[in-house]
Write a protein that binds this DNA or RNA. Structure first.
Lengths: 343, 343
DNA sequence: TTGTATGCGTTATCAT
DNA sequence: ATGATAACGCATACAA
């Protein structure tokens, strides 16, 4: 009589396969596959015993095998053209990811983030083209960078933000910047302001352009002058500088629309440093409704930027594209005015 | 004569396969595989023509097929037991990820983050057990939470931080909290302080325990009294409250070690609010060297927590484990004192 | 409705 | 050193 001594390898026993489930349930592998994938055409009683076997064996489909057989990966990549550290430092990305994850959780897709700038760019490229991914979400903050557009005929892609050029070629979702800026100006006008300035964003970024346009159209509709424009680059420091220039002009000024909250925060400081009151002397409205809006005093009246919704919608569009359903090429998300104390 | 009209499907042509490369190079698939995977035993001239074919076709191996055949995924998961939004909001995670990514970029492994709390926890579990991943990195901030330890006999795991219990069972890397706290106290003593208090962290978290122990041993070595202890929970508010209690004792107090920078920041405010000067009246040293250390005035002398290194080391250990090389069960990272203005 | 058989693109085990 | 050929675990067209 022989004795076999089990060797403890530290490795767990191999994962159960479709075939094992089939054996235990007394059906064919095809039937198990159908049950697992929720096919309608399977007899209830068979389905029962299959499900039972699945639970008994704690079966979970092998992703690689499934991918190989079905030519679908059920994976989508969030591509961020920034360094890892920057991505995490920026609350904007955080919120986009949150929205994307929220939508994806209702689907079978997995999310998979890759920051492109680090390492060799070719690695990212090869990964995306290597059939490891069903679709790509590209998020670059304000810039509307569509430099990955060439991937478009290899993979469905949805961008965050309208591209600066070639808007007709790609799918994207953006917030309605112009409408938001318009609402901001209207708030200023409604509260009795007549001399309304703006600190605009860079004019090589779509949000910069659109928010300025919204400000202009609001003024035009009310027959007001649109001479009071200064430009910043969306940073606090640039907001301060722009506000100084505005004040230095010596013109009447009782209202300000800043193209984002950071620049509004910069303006806040300068206004108060000049001994002027907010909102009594100068009312100010920002854009984005981010951390800066509430960390400043008085709290900023601002245009809410639905960032999480943006992520959600991007994911939604991409999944539609992947599954071959028709999708609108562009989705423009509505904004809403958040009234606080500064206007 | 018939005419076939090409239908534009919008789909790109199928990716080149190993077989196509083999055909073009005039060798067998096995040889191509060997070249692609850097096998030594292949004739230089054949290798040449294979590489040429690879470039010509822009061949990139199919990950799913490779995984299926080799039973290796070359993917590791960073598991974060927090909500997505929390993860991104916390600079600690950001920096860990940075370190992990840095190391992994020198390898063939891909990183793949999953935040566990959202959605159903079972989904995460099934994903990890489903053979989609070669190993797992678990990061939970201060807590030393090892609740995923049961995965250990299914998958290699490396934790961030020592577990509260069962330290002998799992692989982890931690910063040397005790040594760091000791250095902080020594700094205080070196600059002439004799009545040194501490605001300790929660005693159900390893860092809270170890930093308190470090403070105690520093005091003991110098024959100083260790009665001045108050506890906080690593938040700014708790630091303020603890400082108030310390001051309310009415005992002499000319030095303070706070178990993290946030609590130190809280203490800062309270000390100054009492009309006391830093460091003249009370010198303070923090721990972590994070944003709070420099956002406070005077800037905080503090113990540098090498978070990026932690991520790097974790990834390194995990890869060693995965590849079957021996690895030390625990890695303790050294700290360093960053001298600024508060002590 | 259910089962059979083939193929997905690699790696790996054999011969040669 | 190189080439057949058999897995790998699943999906799916086709047959029954």
């Amino acid at each position: 009589m022989e004795t076999t001594v089990g060797i403890e390898t530290g490795q767990s026993r191999p994962a159960p396969t479709l075939e094992m489930v089939a054996a235990l349930a007394g059906v064919s592998r095809a039937t198990v596959s159908r049950v697992v994938n929720g096919s309608t055409s399977v007899a209830p009683e068979l389905a029962q015993s299959v499900e039972q076997a699945v639970r008994a064996l704690n079966y979970v489909p092998n992703r690689a095998a499934r991918t190989l057989a079905s030519r679908r990966t059920y994976t989508i990549t969030l591509l961020v053209p920034e360094s890892t550290s920057k991505v995490f430092a920026d609350p904007f990305f955080a919120t986009v990811v949150e929205g994307v994850a929220k939508y994806l959780n209702s689907t079978e897709y997995m999310l998979n983030m890759v920051t492109s700038s680090e390492a060799d760019p070719g690695k990212t490229q090869r990964y995306l083209m290597g059939g490891n991914v069903d679709g790509v979400l590209v998020v670059s903050h304000h810039s509307g960078d569509h430099s990955w557009e060439h991937l478009n005929d290899a993979l469905p892609i949805v961008f965050a933000g309208r591209p600066l050029l070639n808007a007709s070629d790609s799918y994207y979702v953006e917030v309605d910047n112009e409408e938001g800026a318009l609402a901001a100006v209207q708030r200023l006008i409604t509260t009795g302001r007549r001399n309304i300035a703006t600190i605009a964003g860079p004019q090589d970024m779509p949000p910069g352009v659109d928010r300025l346009a919204g400000w202009r159209s609001g003024l035009a509709a009310a027959g007001l002058d649109d001479a009071l424009v200064e430009y910043g680059d969306f940073t606090v420091a640039s907001g301060e500088a722009a506000m100084r220039r505005l004040l230095a002009r010596g013109k009447p000024l009782d209202g300000l629309f800043a193209a984002n909250d950071q620049m509004a925060a910069g303006a806040h400081a300068v206004i108060q440093e000049h001994g002027l009151r907010i909102p009594e002397d100068i009312a100010v409205v920002g854009f984005d409704d981010d951390l800066f809006a509430t960390s400043v005093s008085p709290a900023l009246t601002t245009v809410h930027h639905p960032i999480s919704d943006l992520g959600e919608k991007m994911a939604h569009m991409l999944v539609e594209l992947i599954e071959g359903r028709p999708a609108h090429r562009v989705c423009r998300l509505p904004t809403s005015l958040v009234v606080r104390d500064s206007a």
